[in-house]
Amino acid sequence: MTAQPRKNADRAPMLVYKDVRKRYGSFTALDGVSLHVNPGEVVCLIGPSGSGKSTLLRCTNGLETLDGGEVLFEGKPLPKSDVEMRGVRQRMGMVFQNFELFPHKTALENVATGLITVKKMPADEANRRAMALMAKVGLSDKTANYPSNLSGGQQQRVAIARALAMEPHVMLFDEPTSALDPETVGEVLNVMRQLALEGMTMIVVTHEMSFARRVASWVVVFEKGKLLEEGPPTQIFDAPLKERTRDFLSHLGWDG
């Protein structure tokens, strides 16, 4: 291990995963994963498809239930009851691979919908907040558009604004650029980089190695449902401790 101290290691971790296990029938998606995320960290989860990164993310906000182990969010285990879980989800923003904007609502309505439905905020206040977030992701001129009239990159930026509207303590990104045309990947990554600079705690499942290299404060490599290696990006990308990490990165054409 490198001697480099991990970011905010002195503070209580935001998320702790203890021996997390998840199976789908005979397929083991997570085979005892333990790791933690400190406040303000950008943690990138990398690894081959089907290695369990997305599953771990979906276990974080309870879209999947655990078969074993435990997830602690801000010191408390994830609640079992639906009602309490809803409270936890309000403090976690999630961005999906396929955006999952609501096609029957305009961009602005998408951003405001959580505030109005979940937080019971008056519509005009919610819309004001949504406007500000649309500006933040650089889409002030697209507020009235329906998702079908937006490019993939624009849709994903609206989706990020929608998640941010709830003022989450942590943002979960599930392969946010995998479904995008190459020319729109950059605009989404820029928004994410901006968020990281502002100190947002982020967990990012990604195949964008250059993003992980430059923006992540901590990188976790998955393989077959297990944690293969974790460390700061300099370690993972420049001097991985495990041969399998080097193999995975060289498959992607990463030459350090």
Partner: peptide, 24 residues
């Protein structure tokens, strides 16, 4: 994923159904 996006925002199952699934 549409339902999951609603759940991720903290919506209840009833809200997901009424706000997201049914209108579509």
């Amino acid at each position: 994923g549409q339902g999951e996006a609603g759940l991720a925002l903290g919506m209840s199952r009833a809200q997901v159904f009424g706000e997201i699934i049914l209108p579509q």
